[in-house]
Amino acid sequence: MISGLTIGAALASLAVGARDLPWGDVLVALFRFDPSRAADVIIWEMRVTRTITGLAVGAALAAAGLVMQQISRNPLADPGILGINGGAALGVVLSIWFLGWRDPLSQSGVAVAGAGLAALFVYLLGRGGRAADSAAILRLTLAGIAVSALCLAVVSAVVLIDQGTRNLYRFWTIGSLAEDSQGRLWWLLPLIAAGLAIAALMSRKMDALALGADSARSFGISVPVTVGAALLSVALLAGGAVALAGPIGFVGLIVPHVTRRLVGPSILPGLLVAVPMGGAVLLLCDVVGRILARPAEIQTGIILALIGGPVFLALMAKVVR
């Protein structure tokens, strides 16, 4: 059912845009490409890349959110809320401003490094106390929100000061799939795949850590190694997603709540659901953004924030009493 949803979202993403294409034409273009038809060119030149980008970004953010929520036992964890997307964005913007780095490889590298540093920083800030109680959840969440606000404030400042950076990042920093991402996509897909592979490989250890550090050690599992692997995985996933589409929030918050309902709290089955579902959610939001403001577009990040903001508030009311 979820793969059906994902395929439907992908087809919608191919069909809907400034110029709508009939579904039949989409399928024909996909399977029998003819460069003389305008529809085929639109689909292959613009929308296929955009659709793959959307699937990869949604999958990466949902997987990152799942890993973060399980090992921190924090139902409010999300790469956007906990400042990891902000760290990645800050890394990219500073590298452009100071160092003039614009090629896809170095941008991917600084995005992952920025995400990793932010993840480590927020983890260290939020650590301590009994991990189960709502005070600890609140501390981690507030630490993340502070880091996020700080990073994004610096990003805004740099973009205001520097015209060149501004032009590059006007769309990017509010989260959009529309920017030309073809060059970056092929660098970033392997990074996102590596993040997913680490999460899958370490899933049993992370599941053990979700029972508390003492239980994990009693199962013979190294807590620092498992936390390090989780942070690396989150940095690759969120950093890769941000380098592709800017800091998009709330996918990583919402999707893990749905996967827990469907397949329970273990990480590996959760990933199998969260990866296609995250892709579908992001694409659907992107399609909605294309429909609402036609022929212009509303950036995906804005649509997700409109949906995700109220969800976050509802979850917070439930968790922190």
Binding site: G212, R217, P265
Partner: peptide, 26 residues
């Protein structure tokens, strides 16, 4: 090795944490 010790000796901590939504058998 910690993994070898864990097959011979287990500790049930005083306050282990159950992940949200987990079922008994899992």
């Amino acid at each position: 090795r910690p993994s070898a010790l864990a097959r011979r000796l287990a500790l049930l901590p005083q306050a282990p944490l159950a992940p949200e939504g987990i079922r008994v058998q899992e």
